[in-house]
Design a protein around this nucleic acid. Structure first.
Length: 183
DNA sequence: TGCACGATGAAC
DNA sequence: TTCATCGTGCAC
C-alpha cells in the first residue's frame, strides 16, 4: 500500500476520478483504522460544470474546492448526511471527485453504498472538511498489484437540474462490483 | 433576518 | 412518492 501524494490529485479531474477506483480510503479515528476500497465516484469539473457546487462561485462552504488539490471537501446534505469529495487540479480550478461507494475492508461499520452511508460507515463528518489527504489521519492509498477491472461510465446521480451537464458521463464505477450504490 | 432547497436514504 | 432535517446562499 502506497499513499497517494499531492501530484496524484493535481491532474485532470476525470483522470483522477478513474484513478481513484480500486484505491483505499483510510481513516484513523481514535486508534481505530477504518479502510474501504473505492468502487464508485463522480467527477465535478469546476465552475463551468452546472452540477458542481463551485458553479455558484466561491462561498464559505465551497472555499476548499477552490483551494489546493489533495484535500477533503466534506459537506452536509439534506441536513443529515455528509458527502466526501477529493479536491483535484491546481488551486483555483475548483473541481473535485465525490466518493459514492466503498467496498468494506477493515473496521467499517454498516453499509457503504452511497455517499452519505459511506461517510457514516467510515466515521467521516464535517470536522474533516478541508483536511489534508496527504496526512496520516485521512488519506488514500493504492496497491501495487491488484486485479484488473473495467470502468463503467454513467450520468451522475441527483443532478437533473444541471441541464446538459446532467447527461455527461462523469460517474464511474468498477464493473460488476457488488457495492455500487445504484444501478 | 427569513426562507427555499439540496451531489441522500429509507419508509410507505 | 413522500419525508426527515438543517446549513447554505440569496432574497428582502
Amino acid at each position: 500500500m502506497r499513499r497517494l501524494g499531492r501530484a496524484f490529485y493535481a491532474r485532470d479531474t476525470v483522470v483522477v476520478a478513474q484513478g481513484l477506483l480500486g484505491t483505499f480510503l483510510i481513516h484513523k479515528q481514535r486508534g481505530v483504522e477504518r479502510i474501504g476500497r473505492i468502487v464508485e465516484v463522480e467527477a465535478y469539473l469546476g465552475p463551468h460544470d452546472l452540477a458542481a457546487h463551485s458553479a455558484r462561485g466561491q462561498t464559505a462552504r465551497t472555499r476548499v474546492m477552490f483551494g489546493p488539490p489533495g484535500h477533503a471537501y466534506v459537506y452536509l446534505i439534506y441536513g443529515m448526511y455528509c458527502c466526501m469529495n477529493v479536491v483535484t487540479e491546481p488551486a483555483g480550478h475548483a473541481s473535485a471527485v465525490l466518493l459514492r461507494a466503498l467496498e468494506p475492508v477493515q473496521n467499517v461499520r454498516g453499509r457503504t453504498q452511497g455517499p452519505g452511508l459511506l461517510c457514516n460507515a467510515m466515521g467521516i463528518d464535517l470536522r474533516l472538511n478541508a483536511h489534508d489527504l496527504t496526512s496520516d489521519k485521512l488519506y488514500i492509498a493504492s496497491q501495487s498489484s491488484s486485479e484488473p477491472f473495467r470502468i463503467v461510465k454513467r450520468p451522475r446521480i441527483g443532478v437533473d437540474y444541471a441541464g446538459m451537464w446532467a447527461r455527461r458521463l462523469l460517474r464511474f464505477y468498477i464493473r460488476g462490483n457488488p457495492y455500487i450504490s445504484k444501478t
